[in-house]
Amino acid sequence: MVSLFLLIDTVLELYVWVLIASAVLSWLFAFGVVNTHNRVVHMIGDMLYRLTDPVLAPIRRVLPNLGGIDVSPVVLILLIYFLRNLLRELWFGM
C-alpha cells in the first residue's frame, strides 16, 4: 500500500510542476519573450495546455474575474497540496 501512496504522491507532485511550467510559458507568450511561431515551442505550449486546461477550466468558472490575472493555477496547486497532506494522514495516520 505504501507503493500506491508513493505513486499517487509522485504523480500529484509532477502535475504541480506541469502547472508551474504552463503558467511560466503562458507569461512568456504574453510578454513576447518566446517565438510563438517556433514549432517546438508551439508543441510544448499545446501539450501543457491540453494537460492543464481540463482541470483549470472548472476552477476558472467559479473564480471571479480579477482583471486579467489568472489565479486558477495557484488555487489548483493549493488543492493538490491539501490532497497530498490528506492522503498522508489517511495512509500513515499522522
Rank of each mutant, 00 (worst) to 15 (best):
V2A: 08
V2K: 11
V2M: 03
S3H: 13
S3E: 15
L4P: 00
F5C: 04
L6I: 01
L7K: 14
L7W: 10
I8H: 08
V11S: 03
V11F: 03
E13T: 15
E13F: 11
L14Q: 05
Y15S: 08
Y15D: 00
Y15R: 02
V16L: 04
V16M: 10
W17S: 10
L19H: 10
I20P: 07
A21L: 13
A21V: 03
S22W: 10
S22Y: 13
S26Y: 09
S26I: 04
W27K: 13
L28A: 12
L28F: 08
F29S: 01
F29N: 12
A30W: 05
A30P: 00
F31A: 02
F31Q: 06
G32L: 03
V33W: 13
V34A: 07
T36R: 14
H37N: 08
H37P: 00
N38S: 11
R39T: 15
H42R: 04
M43L: 14
I44Y: 10
M47A: 04
L48G: 09
L48K: 01
L48C: 12
Y49N: 11
Y49G: 15
Y49H: 14
R50I: 15
R50D: 15
R50W: 14
L51Y: 07
P54Q: 01
P54R: 07
P54G: 09
V55G: 06
V55K: 04
V55Q: 01
L56H: 05
L56Q: 07
L56G: 11
A57N: 08
A57R: 02
P58V: 03
I59F: 12
R60G: 07
R60Y: 12
R61E: 11
R61M: 08
V62E: 10
V62C: 01
V62G: 02
P64M: 05
P64V: 14
P64C: 06
P64T: 03
P64F: 08
N65P: 12
N65K: 04
N65Y: 12
L66A: 03
L66E: 07
L66I: 14
L66R: 12
L66K: 01
L66Y: 05
G67K: 05
G68N: 08
G68K: 14
G68P: 05
I69T: 10
I69F: 15
D70C: 10
S72C: 07
S72D: 11
P73D: 05
P73T: 13
P73C: 14
P73W: 10
V74L: 04
L76R: 11
I77G: 08
I77C: 10
I77A: 12
L78S: 09
L78N: 05
L79M: 15
L79S: 12
I80Q: 02
I80D: 01
Y81G: 00
Y81R: 11
Y81C: 00
N85C: 00
N85H: 14
L86F: 09
L86P: 04
L86R: 08
L86Q: 06
L87Y: 01
E89R: 12
W91A: 10
W91K: 06
W91L: 14
W91G: 14
G93E: 14
M94Y: 15
M94A: 15
M94I: 12
M94Q: 07
